[in-house]
Computed example of a mutant assay.
Amino acid sequence: MRQLILDLLPEVPPSLDNYVTGSNAEALTGLASWLAPVNREPVFFLWGEAGAGKSHLLQASQASYSDARQDPGLAAVDLQDTLHAIDNIEALDASGQVAAFNLINRLRADGGRLLVAASVPPLRLALREDLRTRLGSGLVYRLQPLSDPEKLAALAEQARARGLVLPAEAFNYLFARAPRDMRSLTALLIAIDRYSLEHKRPITLPLLREVLQSSLDF
């Protein structure tokens, strides 16, 4: 169901501005400062459970992005870049760990930087000791997932920003029937807006039901 929702509309590029902050204001401010050209701290480490927005922030950083789940050996890393981001770093294989260790050392020597994300803090990673030490030597922030009330508030704010008028019970209706990650909820909200405009109908619960049934085979 989640992929069907995301396929409804073109991808919206992740940015720091469209990240739903929740209780992560300190981490977001720290990342924005770290990304400033004058900052030379070599490593910035984000950790937290799935759904906290780690991948969103790494992709929003404009760094050369690698996902260790897709490339565990970091074979596709472009060594000419000076700003790198490695997502799901706990998925690195033995050769990838060597590559990541060497990359950090090269970036340190050349004034480059590495942004990293994982599900656990550096010292709890099941990686080689020298790499864990390097990863833990920089700035480390934990990202907290949005609470259900925060997701509902964010969804309502997005609706207001788009000028959408939804019945009071609409958000709880969608929240009970759609995936609860913000990326999916946002895509679904935009799809509802488009469906309403195409059919020249106000947004009502019957219309929401139609969107879910026709688009998601719900």
Rank of each mutant, 00 (worst) to 15 (best):
R162T: 04
L9A: 03
A118D: 00
S23L: 13
H56K: 08
R183N: 05
D130E: 08
R128W: 11
P122I: 03
W47S: 02
R106K: 11
L152W: 07
P121T: 10
P179T: 14
P14V: 13
L166R: 10
R180E: 03
L155G: 05
A126S: 13
S214G: 01
V98A: 13
R160Q: 11
L216P: 03
Q3P: 01
E49H: 12
T204M: 07
V43L: 05
A68H: 04
D93H: 15
R113A: 00
Q70W: 10
V120P: 02
L174A: 09
L107C: 04
F175H: 14
P42L: 12
I89Q: 02
F101Q: 04
A94N: 06
F101Y: 15
M1D: 02
L127V: 08
L146P: 04
G51S: 10
Y173L: 06
H199G: 01
A99Q: 09
D87V: 13
R142G: 11
D110V: 09
S55L: 09
P149K: 04
L123K: 14
D67F: 10
K54T: 02
A27S: 07
P13G: 12
R40A: 05
A32Q: 07
Q213I: 03
E41N: 08
G112F: 08
L174E: 01
N102W: 00
N105V: 08
A25Q: 14
R128V: 08
R69W: 06
E11Y: 09
Q62D: 09
Q144S: 14
R106A: 12
L155V: 09
V12T: 10
L92H: 11
Q144L: 14
A50K: 08
F45G: 02
A118E: 00
Q97A: 09
R194D: 02
S119Y: 05
A85D: 00
R183T: 07
V140A: 10
R124G: 03
P145I: 07
L143A: 04
S137Q: 11
F101H: 14
K151Y: 10
S95W: 12
V140D: 03
D78K: 15
I86T: 06
V98I: 13
M1C: 03
L123V: 06
N172H: 13
L9Q: 12
Q62R: 15
Q70R: 13
Y195N: 01
Q3N: 08
E157G: 12
S55W: 12
V38P: 00
S64P: 01
L208H: 03
E210G: 06
A178K: 08
R180P: 02
L4F: 07
D71R: 07
V98R: 15
G136K: 12
D148Y: 11
W34R: 07
A187H: 11
V38A: 14
F44Y: 15
P72Q: 12
L135A: 09
L79W: 07
Q62K: 13
M1Q: 07
P149Q: 13
P42E: 09
P145M: 14
G96W: 11
A178V: 14
Y173R: 06
A94Y: 09
T204Y: 09
Y141E: 03
N18S: 04
A126K: 14
P167T: 13
R134Y: 06
M182W: 06
L35M: 11
E198A: 15
V140G: 07
L46A: 10
N24G: 05
S214L: 10
G111E: 04
R177G: 09
S15I: 05
E150R: 09
A100H: 13
E129S: 15
L8K: 06
Q158P: 01
R132E: 00
A168K: 12
D193M: 06
P167K: 14
V98K: 10
